[in-house]
């Protein structure tokens, strides 16, 4: 009797889960149809609904970015591509579209003007997504544990190759743990933000009474230094710092 009840509860749970995915698929199909027929507003609203339902999905962020781009909201498009890349830094489509969208901003954002070594370093640093790194770390760690177990079992036969294997595994573990840790730190402390208002003036202090330093436009990627209620201190890729209104930008961090 007890078993039967449990069975019913479990099957009900799965059924509800299934029906939930079913409605999600329907929504997704509607959104795809709307996007195909150039009804980007409708597609955007469906994707936003899906975003609330299914939290944290890089593909949803990417699709929202596409809708914003088609609706000529370059700033928000860039923001959502960025969000997708925060979750999955190896999202090739998002990367491509972000680079494309960046050409439409009024402010020239010359990220490629770095020297070769630093650009190569940053590219390889973000080449693996956070989850891919997590998997690599897990596999390497388990491999290390496994080899330690082997050593414990056959304590008499420490061969040279086994020792080298152990050492290399330890080194690899250190490298990947360090890499993942720094990436996780960046993920947790993402200070990036995108200007969402068409035109924003930056001042030397929190208030319009301060000297106006420079003007930025929608789609500019910046770094938040300090938030002070309605005003935020920001820094640009070229080293400029200033204060802008907090309402004029959107943070990338999820």
């Amino acid at each position: 009797m007890k078993h039967k009840l449990l069975l019913i509860i479990v099957s009900l749970f799965f059924f509800s889960l299934l029906s939930a995915t079913q409605t999600n698929i329907q929504l997704l199909n509607q959104a795809t149809e709307a996007y195909k027929s150039n009804d980007f507003d409708k597609a955007l609203s469906i994707y936003s609904e899906l975003e609330k339902k299914i939290q944290k999905n890089p593909d949803i962020y990417y699709n929202i970015g596409n809708c914003y781009f088609k609706l000529n909201r370059i700033g928000l498009a860039i923001l959502y591509y960025k969000k997708a890349l925060v979750l999955d830094s190896s999202h090739a489509l998002a990367k491509k579209n972000l680079n494309f969208a960046l050409k439409f901003t009024l402010d020239k954002q010359d990220f490629e003007n770095q020297n070769f070594i630093s650009s190569f370093f940053s590219r390889s640093f973000f080449s693996l997504s956070l989850n891919a790194l997590a998997w690599v770390c897990l596999i390497l760690f388990i491999a290390l544990i496994a080899i330690i177990h082997v050593f414990l079992r056959q304590s008499e036969s420490y061969t040279h190759t086994k020792k080298m294997f152990l050492i290399s595994l330890v080194v690899l573990n250190i490298i990947f743990v360090g890499w993942s840790a720094s990436r996780f730190y960046i993920y947790k402390n993402n200070k990036e933000a995108v200007i969402s208002s068409p035109k924003v003036d930056a001042y030397s202090g929190p208030g319009e009474s301060f000297t106006k330093l420079f003007t930025v436009h929608e789609g500019l990627i910046l770094k938040v230094i300090k938030v002070d209620n309605a005003w935020t201190q920001i820094s640009l890729f070229n080293g400029f710092t200033g204060w802008i209104r907090t309402s004029t930008y959107k943070a990338v961090a999820i």
């Binding site: 999600n24 299914i54 944290k56 999905n57 593909d59 990417y62 979750l87 489509l93 989850n131 997590a134």
Partner: peptide, 12 residues
Amino acid sequence: IVTNLRFSGFKI
């Protein structure tokens, strides 16, 4: 757009 996306959500 991506049409066949995963519904499982994205977990870190």
